[in-house]
Design a binder for these strands. Structure first.
Lengths: 213, 213
DNA sequence: TTCACATTGCTAATTATTTCACAATAATTT
DNA sequence: AAATTATTGTGAAATAATTAGCAATGTGAA
């Protein structure tokens, strides 16, 4: 798709718009107003319109936006035409959680392999995803043209896994360990650190508490 | 602590600085330069100095920042003096992952209860955290003065749990379901949605791939 | 037909965050 | 003593993201 340089935040919201729209699609409604989308996500209608403007979508002045069309357009922009395959490394609680959360969600994005070192997990299938020994990672990533890696191992191991992923050819990494990783510029890296999130909540909770008497 | 209106991003980084500093504390070094901190987190030295400026900390021109002092100052700012107690709702894979990630980390922030509906989990202890039936949530939150709630249940249940938490008096909520929640202004809400994260990685991975030939 | 209305689309303003650029400083070398 | 060096601290510029404000428009009512 043609749209370029979408803001990061807009890309995140597009993913959310799509899911919200899919949920109301089956209903009788065919169109939706910006304020309705906004309400579902608890953001402002202006924000919704701005995002849709950025992807070049126009609504109908009286009816709002065509739900089906919009879902398709978002798909054309954020999905890859031929789909993308994903591997999860680390089949502990977090790895499993990711797999279950994802199960049966987006068809263009498929988790097709898991890796671990624990012999009990290897060669078993978890929620439809086969688990292999981590030593086979490079091979399997290459063979299956896996382009995205999710790191859910203990943090010490994260750097070597990231490096191996990059060498094997992944184009994006989602790192759930608190260990900051270094990847070359042609690999997109997203990091999420639960501890930071929780400490942030704690900070603002404390702050709010003081502020509201 | 006195510092007010810290940017959200700065608060997040303070949490990360502290953890990075704790890791190098036991070593021989007593001081650290902004570029060293920056290197550990893969950010710029200016950013580090700016953040420290915002919390009013001054380093030594020749030796850098006193590691111990800085750790303590960050603690004074982001921790609550008397600590904060945390409850996790939903003891599935994600709930368990959160508890293990957190185990033995920050003493000022303690996960002291878990809740679920599954009878097999109730009255058992997971990683040091006792699990109760969700019907007891309000009571236990009030009794133990729990100020932070983590929601890790299937998304449909998230809104009612959030509401119950607010009524029970929590001051901050960390929501891991993709369901956007509504809370009153005196409760701080942080949402993290794995699917959005993964779709974002997919988008930029695709984009990078196109861009770098 | 004309008016009132609700909504989109967009420019401009605002706010938030990061980065630049450089003065100030103190230890070390010449 | 003077020059050199490496570092901090910070105003100001740049960039990113959100929000305000409002003209344009199409529909239904008067």
């Amino acid at each position: 798709m043609f749209v370029k340089n979408l803001p990061h935040k807009t890309v995140e919201r597009l993913s959310q718009y799509r899911r919200a729209l899919l949920m109301i699609l089956s209903k009788e409604k065919t169109h939706v107003f910006s304020h309705e989308i906004a309400q579902m996500l608890h953001i402002t209608p202006v924000q919704v319109r701005r995002d849709l403007m950025l992807i070049g979508y126009s609504g109908n002045l009286r009816k709002g936006y065509d739900i089906k069309e919009l879902i398709e357009l978002i798909g054309k922009i954020i999905d890859s035409e031929r789909g993308q395959r994903v591997a999860v490394v680390g089949l502990g609680n977090l790895g499993k959680a990711i797999i279950s959360y994802f199960k049966g969600k987006r068809s263009k994005l498929a988790i097709i392999a898991a890796f671990d070192v624990n012999p009990e997990k290897i060669n078993r299938v978890y929620d439809g995803v086969a688990c292999h020994h981590i030593s086979q990672m490079s091979e399997i990533i290459k063979q299956n043209n896996i382009s995205i890696g999710i790191i859910a191992v203990p943090s010490e191991q994260a750097p070597e896994i990231a490096e191996a992923m990059v060498l094997a050819g992944v184009k994006g990494i989602l790192n759930f360990t608190p260990k900051p990783l270094n990847v070359p510029p042609f690999v997109y890296l997203e990091e999420y650190d639960m501890i930071t999130s929780l400490e942030k909540v704690a900070f603002f909770a404390k702050k709010n508490d003081e502020r509201f008497k």
